[in-house]
Write a protein that binds this DNA or RNA. Structure first.
Lengths: 141, 141
DNA sequence: CTACTTGCAAACTCTTTGCACCATA
DNA sequence: TATGGTGCAAAGAGTTTGCAAGTAG
């Protein structure tokens, strides 16, 4: 269902700001509220940060975007249309890479079968050390 | 190595506050800075929140405690002496359960073998819906 | 027209920092 | 007694909210 229909069917209105927020998240791929705001202000000055927050929340409620917590607190949003993926975050260099959800299917299946737990894969973030940093710091510490 | 030795060997001092912070985290199991502070003030009034923050940071640097991000931003600390575990957080009821790290060993091994990524399992949190909530909401939405 | 939205500014929460006094080693 | 540590208060980041003016339907 398209954004206008999604909105109207629930009594919300279609505003330029809402379209921009969705567009920003879709285009940026991994967008913090701050980053989305910067992208939007670039093409439409005057849009307020609080509007970004309100609309990210709304779009998430509608299921059009999701968020995950990469690093210390800054939530990162992606469009729900993007293929679902797991994040790998390197705590040394901060690099964020994506991993197809299929790769964690065994884990998800096990959690469901043995613990009845329905994991939200799109929200899953694995912290650690990326290949590059692991090599670089191999002999330290 | 004990706390006093850990500290002294790096030129830090042993203070009652530091002992309390470590004790709070060990006792509480899952402690936010705020929770640790409450626990400490209970037995030693006057200890400041900023001291808790400073010492949690220090203890983590020494490898005596670890933290994970459960829910929206509030970091949760555990003693490093506790067995390493993964957190399962239910986004409906907020229940936090633990899962032995062995259970995710296949995933960790795969990440290392195929992506060179060294996952920090103790920091891993899986969000989703617990068995109870999954049943309760099965027919909604 | 009416109710939903927005911009703006203030309020909030969580965390960090500067500084003078205090206490460990 | 020489640092390193603490309490206190103020400053910061990130996010939320109240309200009057604006606008989609």
């Amino acid at each position: 269902m398209s954004l206008p229909d999604q909105l109207r069917s629930r009594g919300y209105r279609l505003t330029p700001q809402r379209q921009l927020v969705l567009e920003a998240v879709t285009t940026l791929g991994h967008a913090t509220p701050e980053a989305a705001h910067a992208w939007i202000v670039d093409r439409s000055p005057g849009v307020n940060l609080s509007t970004i927050y309100r609309n990210l929340e709304l779009l998430e409620e509608l299921g059009l975007v999701n968020h995950a917590h990469l690093s210390h607190g800054a939530p990162t949003y992606h469009a729900a249309t993007a293929p679902e993926h797991v994040h790998l975050v390197c705590r040394r260099c901060g690099t964020i890479s994506s991993l197809d959800s299929d790769a964690v299917e065994p884990l998800v299946g096990m959690l469901r079968a043995e613990h009845g737990f329905h994991a939200d894969v799109g929200h899953l973030t694995v912290f650690g050390e990326c290949a590059t940093c692991a090599k670089m710091y191999a002999r330290d510490e």
